[in-house]
Amino acid sequence: MDKLSLLKNGIIKENPVLILLLGTCPTLAVTTSAVNGLGMGVSTMAVLIGSNIVIALLKNIIPDKVRIPSFIVVIAGFVTIVGMLLQGYAPEINESLGLFIPLIVVNCIILGRAEMFASKNKVADAAFDGIGMGLGFTFALFLMGSIRELIGSGAWMGINLTADLIDPMSVFMLAPGAFFTYGCLVALINYLTEGKAIKKKEFGCEGCATAANCQQIGKGGCA
């Protein structure tokens, strides 16, 4: 597959957050500011690229029956490395992302790409898929973070834009604002694509990492 279309696929056509609706937990939880969204996006991208490359390298060695646990170990290894790097070089980001750094392990995007793509494709393709998906994830989180920070505190990237002329709606920094912003963004995508992009992919089995050993798959997805 050509590399540019792999990148475009991850960023636009199959954007993990806005189109596939995967990785919803970090999307909602850490996007209280643009910087946090960016930090989470880049951390996840680093893990995704690393795990995609290693899994594509090991795809002929890992026995089929234990592939999910093996993928998880590879991913957890990279998460630990990223966590240590953040602790050392970006302690503030590490502080504000907190629990969601170790939880990158269970981010369905990463296990999903390992299962769907990296374990079936060449190393270079897997790397570009990781970059594309990672950029798509980072972009979506940065967008969410920017919107919530701007409305919720009147600032963007820590720079005060409204000069305190408008009272910020602090509810956008809290849990309800996260759901609301995400809902509006998905609705916007629906509107722009006239419902074609998301319609058939609503939490479908194709995006689910555990689909391989899920008994619901024959019954048309999660209950």
């Binding site: 309800p176 759901f179 809902g183 998905v186 509107y191 319609k199």
Partner: peptide, 23 residues
């Protein structure tokens, strides 16, 4: 709902209101 909000967006907005109640 308005066409764009059908499906997941409406569910997310509903979740937002439930979360508001939990606050």
């Amino acid at each position: 709902f308005p066409a764009a909000f059908k499906g997941i967006p409406s569910v997310l907005i509903a979740a937002s209101i439930v979360s508001l109640a939990f606050m």
